[in-house]
């Protein structure tokens, strides 16, 4: 008897076990099925969202930046490397790069930023892709269009990178200084990194181009 403990389980207990087992099995099957059907559309939706954001932050291009990515080491920044989307014109010349970065010192959690620079290292535009800043205060970084556009065309030298409160050229928002300060600081660091790594990036981009030509 003791060697076969399951013999002691009575009918009622078996029913409980089987009920949970079958429900677990069926729901697992249902979820797997849903995953199969939604996997591709979700990937597609994310791609579409990223693609439309890319067209906003990059100068006009004719290639598929999502298919031409470069991984560049970023020793001076917190991340280990950036994934750069390269934009080219019809002649295959680089017109700009876009990449995603994160501002970690916002008011509430990380702020995800997609930024684009043109081939001279001038900032083209930036978009916030995800954040948890206070609605109505810090979320001006996604809603205050003049403030967002203030970054367009700036370089390291054309503007003082900081909010007015800190002696910079950018407005802070009423009741929210931390959020814009975090975004500006991150974008400034990123531009600095780009100007330092410019040669390396262009070199990587040219080898990418060659590889494609050979194919």
């Amino acid at each position: 008897m003791s060697q076969r403990p399951w013999m002691n389980i009575d009918r009622e207990q078996w029913q409980m076990v089987m009920a949970l087992f079958i429900v677990g099995l069926l729901t697992t099957f249902l979820l797997a099925l849903t995953d199969i059907f939604t996997h591709e559309p979700i990937a597609q939706a994310k791609r579409t969202a990223l693609h439309s954001a890319l067209t906003e932050v990059l100068p006009p291009y004719t290639n598929q930046p999502l298919d031409e990515t470069l991984t560049i080491a970023t020793p001076t920044l917190k991340d280990e490397h950036h994934l750069l989307y390269s934009a080219r014109d019809a002649n295959g010349n680089i017109v700009g790069f876009a990449w995603e970065t994160i501002a970690n010192d916002g008011y509430a959690g990380s702020i995800y930023i997609l930024m684009g620079v043109n081939s001279e290292g001038r900032m083209h535009a930036m978009r916030i892709t995800d954040h948890k800043e206070t609605p109505g205060l810090g979320d001006g970084i996604t809603k205050n269009q003049p403030w967002i556009d203030h970054f367009n065309g700036q370089t390291l030298n054309t503007i003082v990178w900081g909010v007015k409160k800190d002696g910079g050229d950018f407005d802070q928002f009423t009741g929210a200084t931390i959020t814009p300060r975090a975004v500006i600081k991150t974008l400034h660091q990123e531009l600095l990194w780009f100007s330092q790594s410019r040669q390396q990036i262009f070199k990587a981009a040219s080898t990418l181009n060659k590889e494609e030509n050979h194919e």
Binding site: A19, L20, T27, L31, T34, T38, A45
Partner: peptide
């Protein structure tokens, strides 16, 4: 005796389905 865990499993499954579906078609 096991109805509550069964209900929760069923509810969690449908919530996940709605979550995935919205992610796919109402991104």
């Amino acid at each position: 005796q096991v109805r509550i865990p069964v209900y929760i499993t069923i509810i969690a499954a449908f919530v996940t389905i709605v979550d995935l579906a919205m992610n796919a078609w109402m991104h």
